[in-house]
């Protein structure tokens, strides 16, 4: 895994546009994310936040512009897509753990099937990350036996077991109640401190303030502005950002 020079971003979105039928979800979006950087994306419902981060691992296909991950452009040619995806972790609002597998097996599946690790090594790695998200004692249970917060932490561990170069989070705490939100945010804080590159769609402005390097505000398919948190929260330039912040804070 070569270290990239600062000039070369880990992720580059360049003039990305996307339509669902006649409806344009993304309008000429550009964003460069350097290795180790932490970006928070916020914005009103339907503004295209999920679609944007799902374009980064090509769960959604963009129609115009370029999406480049670690120097590899993602396009219609799907060869190599699984190689790119294994380096991009993704955490969903609904957790999406595999219900037929135990938590441990959820964490071992990727390393064994995709990375070709031996089950013994994969188990060791899974237990390490389940320890980091503080649920090692849940390893043998099935997802349905866990609380929402525990499930989301298991899902984070599952992604981390692939040792990804970036972690994408799509509203990871939106389906949780307050106590569980804190459990998950604590884990995400730890992850940020470990130097992980993160792109997080969230409305947790406390998290944005303390963890983000930059906060992006999206509206109607565009990134309206993208600023360091101190400036984003105190002196945003755009009216729409101001209105959004006054509603959410």
């Amino acid at each position: 895994m070569e270290r990239l020079t600062p000039a070369e971003p880990l992720i580059e979105l360049d003039g990305v546009s996307k339509w669902f039928g006649a409806f344009q979800v993304l309008r000429d979006v550009s964003l460069r994310v350097a290795e180790g950087e932490r970006i928070v994306i916020c914005g009103p419902s339907g503004s295209g936040k999920s679609t944007l981060i799902r374009c980064i691992n090509r769960l959604e296909e963009h129609q115009e512009g370029r999406v480049v991950f670690a120097g590899r452009e993602l396009g219609a040619d799907t060869a190599g897509l699984t190689e790119v995806r294994r380096e991009i972790g993704m955490v969903f609002q609904e957790f999406n753990l595999f219900p037929h597998l135990t938590v441990l097996e959820n964490c071992m599946l990727g390393p064994v099937r995709v990375l070709g690790m031996s089950p013994a090594d994969a188990r060791e790695r899974a237990m390490e990350f389940l320890g980091r998200v503080r649920i090692p004692e849940q390893a043998g249970k099935h997802p349905a036996q866990l609380s929402g917060g525990q499930q989301q932490r298991a899902a984070i561990a599952r992604s981390l077991c692939m040792r990804p170069r970036v972690m994408l989070f799509d509203e990871p705490t939106s389906a949780l109640d307050p106590v569980m939100i804190k459990e998950v945010l604590d884990v995400m804080n730890d992850l940020a401190e470990s130097g992980m590159t993160m792109i997080v769609v969230t409305h947790e402005m406390g998290f944005a303030r303390t963890v983000a390097d930059r906060v992006a505000f999206m509206d109607e398919g565009s990134i309206v502005e993208c600023l360091p948190p101190d400036r984003f929260f105190t002196s945003p330039a755009d009216e729409r950002t101001k209105r959004f912040l006054s509603q959410i804070l």
Binding site: N57, E83, R86, F92, N96, L97, G110, V114
Partner: peptide, 8 residues
């Protein structure tokens, strides 16, 4: 989607 994200 979760499976595809792991690179399966």
């Amino acid at each position: 989607e979760a499976g595809a994200s792991l690179g399966l």
